[in-house]
């Protein structure tokens, strides 16, 4: 237990010591998205009877939760691998399950801190009420956990920073940007609507948004089931890789 707590604390401090870069910067990015898209579209678009700028905020919050949870675990692991400091966590008797839990939890905490930061920075521009806070929290936790676990796989798999960047730019970015952060999928042509249902991030954004407005494209129970199932599958895969020592222990 002490090993897990220490590794969690170390992972937390690792991003907290550079929080200007790891927390403040993504908040600013989300704020810029809001200002630009909100300014251009707010007077022309309503979604589910909600002003566009209000519709946009929960999507941006969730997008940053997911991207930062991924960034935390993946960057920590690849930095440690490339600098060689990974030996400090491989030499001690830390069970692989504790290793997994510490990295995922720290990454989720970073994601949530960024999410709260985005919410606080954008709340001035939109009228928001959280009508179902437990749904919001559930989607943030399981979505963040899923992306933290994906970040671990990416960090362990990557041997160079550009491999990790490819994972981020060609998988994580498209999945999050094309998930309904900026639009309701029912504004899309039928083919793209259908395709969006194969993107698990769509369910995270849609369910998270349900917590704010009480309306969503898909029933929140269905969305949560999809997200929890994906989280369980990716977690099991990550645990299996850690148990084997894949790309960590030669």
């Amino acid at each position: 237990m002490i090993g897990f707590l220490t590794l969690f604390e170390k992972e937390f401090l690792r991003f907290w010591k550079v929080s200007f870069q790891t927390v403040a910067a993504p908040v600013l990015t989300a704020l810029l998205y809001l200002l630009i898209f909100g300014h251009v579209l707010d007077e022309h678009v309503q979604v589910h009877g909600v002003r566009y700028i209000s519709f946009l905020v929960p999507g941006l919050v969730m997008m940053q939760v997911l991207q930062n949870a991924f960034a935390n675990s993946s960057s920590s692991l690849i930095q440690a691998k490339i600098t060689g400091s990974i030996v400090f966590v491989l030499l001690p008797p830390i069970p692989y399950s504790a290793f997994f839990a510490a990295y995922v939890l720290a990454a989720v905490v970073r994601g949530l801190l960024v999410g709260v930061g985005v919410l606080l920075a954008t709340v001035w521009f939109a009228e928001l009420k959280v009508v179902a806070p437990w749904w919001t929290l559930a989607f943030a936790l399981f979505g963040g956990g899923l992306f933290a676990a994906l970040g671990m796989i990416a960090g362990i798999w990557s041997e160079k920073f550009d491999q990790l960047a490819a994972f981020q730019n060609f998988l994580i970015m498209p999945l999050t940007m094309l998930s309904g952060v900026f639009y309701s999928i029912y504004t899309l042509p039928t083919f793209w609507q259908g395709l969006s249902h194969y993107n698990p991030v769509f369910y995270m954004i849609d369910g998270f948004r349900y917590g704010f407005f009480g309306v969503s494209d898909v029933a929140p129970e269905t969305s949560l089931a999809v997200v929890v199932a994906c989280f369980a599958a990716v977690s099991m895969l990550t645990l299996r890789l850690l148990k084997r020592g894949w790309k960590l222990r030669g």
Binding site: I2, L5, E9, L13, S85, V87
Partner: peptide, 26 residues
């Protein structure tokens, strides 16, 4: 084990490094 490579975690000072390493060993 003292590894051959000169590796370190750049986020921490010496005392923090040693406290963290102690924690890893419970």
């Amino acid at each position: 084990v003292v590894p051959q490579e000169l590796v370190f975690d750049p986020f921490f000072n010496v005392r923090e490094t040693l406290r963290i390493q102690s924690g890893y060993f419970g």
